[in-house]
Design a binder for these strands. Structure first.
Length: 510
RNA sequence: GCGCCCAUGGCUCAAUUGGCAGAGCAACGGACUCUUAAUCCGUAGGUUGUAGGUUCGAUUCCUACUGGGCGCACCA
């Protein structure tokens, strides 16, 4: 047997406790425990359960040993409950076993529900079963309630460890657990919303021979037996629209997309998007759908359409403000760009201190001005509508102006949370747009989109008028949970690998 | 990719102008059958992220590296 030489002192002590338990014929890792109630049930239903026998299981999260009687709190998924363990109730042998237990161990208890002198609902334990012995000590977080204030001491707060060892974060920080429960409910609520509208949930490829549907650099991977490179999808769009061609009137997909870009508070290399495509509808319909959907989700999750983020409170109740991109820019810069030539706009960009030399065309300059001067001010929920055609190769031309497309992006708290348009279904126009993108790519725009012949072929068979939408789930969850960083709403955010130790990192570079 | 900041027992944090690395919690031993940040007495725990340098002497100053945070760039 391999001796645990590298164990630190605390781990060594726990290892020895496991050996002692084995010597007492206690299995530290048994197979099953049958519960009758959860911790929350017992606390909530004290009126019915007081004096009754219950069986509850959970992880020991606090421990107050005092001679021949002890108190502890055990925590399960939904709550915590105090247990009262007395030597005269469980017997001397079991009590010796209990004395070997630590914070972090899992136990199952059976006993009578009662209230302590101080009024806390508790279980007077008559049977105690060790369910799993922990070898590594948890960071201890202490808390107390004083004058209605919930005070936390020695909170486990090192963000690096919290993200790398999310399991520990979840164990000791209940508010983190709540965020991910909310995330799950948000997705559930959104799915229900679309089910009720009769849309079909589908799955499309993540590994794609041609990536498309967004401006982004992809991750590349390789398929061995086909001996071809494949790309991890940057969006679901082109496949979902093929399904509209195929005859489904409404399809949606929750899925991970992957973009090989920088990482920060708002960007993780893999992120979750919900994309939706609806036949016979346009972007006006989609705006109404978005504001109704978000408001409904907020109501279901938080009980209100008001949300507070970094000390500002807004209301998500429809209707949201709709603002044309040109008007939004004029509102903030006093420049009306509408109908201006590329050279004029380039000049205005210069006057506004935008680095126009880095921007290849008119559309990109307008977008640059917008992002710099307008975006940060879009705190209240707002639809920015009618975008320049150059930056929207998959959107349909505006019914009133061929230089624009019918497209909108919803903004909340200064952040884009989605993207939608009346989908381009004219195959001849679509081919031209792809060709224009290819031209931009040639001129060095490495995020320009690439021609997808099969997609154009699908359009050539005919796609009905269609409205499409993509919603960034992570950002929506950030807003609805008040989380300042995307890493707070992704269970396992991308991190650099932990260091391997000094003698394992030799053959790098070369 | 660039700039600024951070890294000290298991956890949360100290350490004066460079002068013996310390505390609380957790742990270990003892007391304790209604405690709840349990309490009381005692004990142990550290190559200060890594590798160099300056110095009689480095947690402290310098350089490089690793990891993280924030901002910028890129993007959603």
């Amino acid at each position: 047997m391999q001796l645990p030489e590298d164990y630190n002192e605390l781990k060594m002590i726990r290892y020895q406790k496991i050996e002692e338990l084995k010597n007492m014929a206690v299995n530290p890792y048994p197979y099953k425990f049958t519960r009758t109630h959860t911790a929350k049930d017992v606390v909530k239903q004290y009126d019915e359960l007081g004096g009754e026998q219950v069986s509850v299981a959970g992880r020991i999260m606090s421990l107050r040993k005092m001679g021949r009687a002890s108190f502890a709190h055990i925590v399960d998924m939904h709550g915590k409950i105090q247990i009262y363990v007395r030597e005269d109730k469980i017997g001397q042998d079991n009590y010796s076993m209990f004395r070997l237990l630590d914070i972090g161990d899992f136990v199952g208890v059976t006993g009578q529900v009662f209230r302590t002198r101080t009024g806390e609902t508790s279980i007077l334990v008559t049977q105690l079963t060790l369910l799993s012995k922990s070898l590594r000590s948890l960071p201890i977080v202490k808390e107390k309630v004083e004058a209605g204030q919930h005070l936390v001491y020695d909170k486990f707060s090192d963000v690096e460890m919290r993200y790398r060892q999310r399991y520990v974060d979840l164990v000791v920080n209940p508010e983190v657990r709540k965020v991910f429960v909310k995330r799950s409910k948000i997705i559930g609520s959104m799915r229900r919303f679309m089910d009720e509208l009769g849309f079909l949930e589908v799955e499309t490829p993540i590994l794609q021979p041609i990536y498309g549907g967004a401006f982004a650099r992809p991750f590349v991977t390789h398929h061995n037996s086909l001996d071809i490179d494949l790309y991890l999808r940057i969006s679901n769009e082109l496949y979902l629209k093929r399904l509209i061609v195929g005859g489904y009137d409404g399809v949606f997909e929750f899925g991970k997309d992957f973009r090989n870009e920088g990482m920060d508070r708002f960007h993780n290399p893999e992120f979750t998007q919900m994309e939706l495509y609806v036949a016979y509808q346009d972007y006006i319909y989609m705006m109404e759908l978005v504001e109704n959907m978000i408001a409904k989700i907020a109501g279901e999750i938080n009980g209100t359409t008001k949300v507070t983020f970094q000390n500002r409170t807004i209301d998500l109740k429809p209707p949201w403000r709709r603002l044309r991109m040109y008007e939004a820019i004029e509102e903030k810069t006093d420049y009306n760009l509408y109908g201006k030539s590329e050279n004029e706009i380039r000049e205005i960009g210069k006057n506004l201190d935008i680095d126009v030399n880095a921007l290849p065309n008119k559309g990109k300059i307008i977008e640059g001005i917008f992002e710099e001067f307008v975006e940060p001010h879009l705190i209240e929920p707002t639809f920015i509508i009618d975008f320049p055609i150059e930056i929207s190769p998959l959107a349909k031309k505006h019914r009133d102006d061929p230089n624009l497309v019918e497209r909108f992006e919803p903004y909340i708290f200064g952040r884009e949370i989605g993207n939608a348009f009346s989908e381009l279904n004219d195959p001849i126009d679509q081919r031209k747009r792809f060709e224009a993108q290819m031209e931009m790519k040639k001129q060095g725009d490495d995020e320009a989109q690439v021609m997808d012949e099969d997609y154009v072929r699908a359009l050539e068979y005919g796609m009905p008028p269609t409205a499409g939408l993509g919603i960034g789930i992570d950002r929506l969850v950030m807003i609805l949970t008040g989380s300042p960083s995307i890493r707070d709403v992704i269970l396992f955010p991308q991190m650099r690998p932990e260091s391997l130790g000094p003698n394992l990192k030799m053959d790098e570079d070369v």
